[in-house]
Design a protein around this nucleic acid. Structure first.
Length: 407
RNA sequence: CGGGCCGUAGUGUAACGGUAGCACGAGUCCUUUGGGAGGAUUUAGUCCGAGUUCAAAUCUCGGCGGCCCGACCA
């Protein structure tokens, strides 16, 4: 993409009303635009990152036999009253026209809708198990939106639902999803601790969260320094310096961001929606469910909190908006290099604007694309200067060699 | 939802109750060209509504909006 065509611009100073680093950097660099407290639009650069993250998630969900779908976002009251979740205080309820009483809500979660859909298609044990997921916007009227993308009122979430004939099958699958989640977060460049936690509104039993150690996180977890075993403070009997219940190592308290969670739902929703099947003995039985979430936009914010320096963002290559940032300095023509890189399958942001070298460098650092490629009269024809974001030294190499470095 | 801070050009910041100013951005022209260039010129603002006052960005009240702490929560 030519930067001269990019409709967003970078800003020199951070917005005065944002304290959270992720919000400051993502706003300055033109990844997001805040429309209201906790409500962000994803601009072209930000949407590219979201797509990269989403595609990693898709690959790993598909690998555990998840079937991607997209559920409705407008839900009739009857769905939530069935489980007593209509009068939860984060629910946005909507009225239309001159209606006095809201009869719909905009989606804050999808267990109910998914359960009803499943009840229409499941009738025999032969229909089980299966799992379906979506990446969709969730709306929750948080009493206090905060920390930029880390706690919004509108956010993107991947939610996966699984349906099983019995608990054993659920927990076998639960373990598979846990492994898939570990891959997702590792591929996105973050270390997520698999953390024992409480279930909240979603389930009665204990669940697991994927927590990324980060000082701006809202949660406190106790993590074993030896084996990485972790528990959320809200249910833990551990304390800083305690012995790990698994391996006897020392646990430490860490602030953390919850980027994912997995819930063994059991039959709670199946009972509310009469989601039953005929088992091998010919008897009616309730379907056993699990649900599994990843906060997609929250993950983007967390990545920025983790990977930045004084100049801007340092995107992990797997989620960066582009593979390389080509800067044409001091009147140099970068068109040929741009086309050449693109023909090699490299996703390039090409700064073809008539701006000063200093401005281009500063913006490139702020945006944080992993590789910077410079062409200029100083570098000369037949070569480019390559620098990895975050590293001090650049080197001048033939274009072919730059391509090899990037790929 | 309790408590605190705050709301001035697109952005960031000034202005004792008394002329709304500066920087960046944006437009035009010239000169520049390896870490957010220089000069000239133009552009654009007091969140909304009441009140006090000769006079309100400034004081008071109400509303709306934002951030932070707490409670709550993916």
């Amino acid at each position: 993409m030519r930067q001269s065509k990019l409709f967003t611009k970078t800003e020199r100073s951070a917005p005065k009303d944002e304290v959270a680093l992720n919000a400051q950097l993502l706003t300055r660099a033109g990844f997001v635009y805040k429309n209201s407290a906790g409500v962000y639009s994803l601009l072209p650069l930000g949407w590219r990152v979201i797509r990269r993250i989403s595609n990693i998630i898709r690959e790993e969900m598909d690998a555990v036999d998840g079937e991607e779908m997209l559920m409705s976002a407008l839900h009739e009251k009857k769905y939530l009253t069935a489980t007593g979740r209509w009068d939860v205080d984060v629910v946005y309820k909507v009225t239309a026209g001159d209606e006095k009483e809201p009869n719909f809500n905009i989606s804050w979660t999808h267990e109910e809708v998914m359960s009803e859909i499943a009840s229409h298609y499941v009738s025999s044990y032969k229909d089980l198990p299966f799992a379906a997921y979506q990446i969709q916007t969730k709306f929750r009227h948080e009493p206090r939106a905060k920390s930029g993308l880390l706690r919004g009122r509108e956010f993107l979430m991947k939610d996966l639902y699984s349906f099983h004939a019995n608990e054993k099958d659920l927990f076998d699958y639960y373990a598979r999803v846990a492994e898939a989640y570990k891959k997702v977060f590792a591929r996105c460049g973050v270390k997520a601790y698999y953390t024992l936690a409480a279930g909240g509104e979603f389930t009665v039993s204990n669940t697991h969260e994927f927590q990324v150690a980060c000082d701006v996180g809202e949660d406190t977890i106790f993590v074993c320094g030896t084996c990485d075993y972790a528990e959320n403070q809200e249910i833990s009997k551990l304390h800083d310096g305690a012995a790990c219940p698994k391996c006897g190592g020392v646990v430490h308290a860490k602030k953390a961001v919850e980027v994912g969670n997995i819930f063994p739902l059991g039959t709670k929703y199946a009972k509310a929606f009469d989601l039953t099947f005929t088992n091998e003995a010919g008897e009616r039985d309730y379907v056993v469910m699990g649900s599994y979430g990843i906060g997609v936009t929250r993950l983007m914010g967390t990545i920025v909190e983790l990977f930045h320096d004084d100049h801007g963002i340092l995107w992990p290559a797997s989620v960066a908006p582009f593979d390389a940032h080509l800067l044409a300095l001091n009147g140099a023509d970068g068109d040929g290099i741009y086309e050449s890189l693109r023909s090699k399958g490299i996703d390039v942001l090409y700064d073809d604007r008539a701006a000063s070298a200093g401005e281009k460098f500063a913006e490139a650092d702020l945006i944080g694309i992993p590789w910077r490629i410079v062409t200029s009269p100083k570098v000369g024809d037949g070569a480019v200067e390559v620098r990895r974001r975050g590293e001090k030294d650049a080197k001048v190499v033939p274009l072919d060699e730059a391509v090899k470095l990037i790929k």
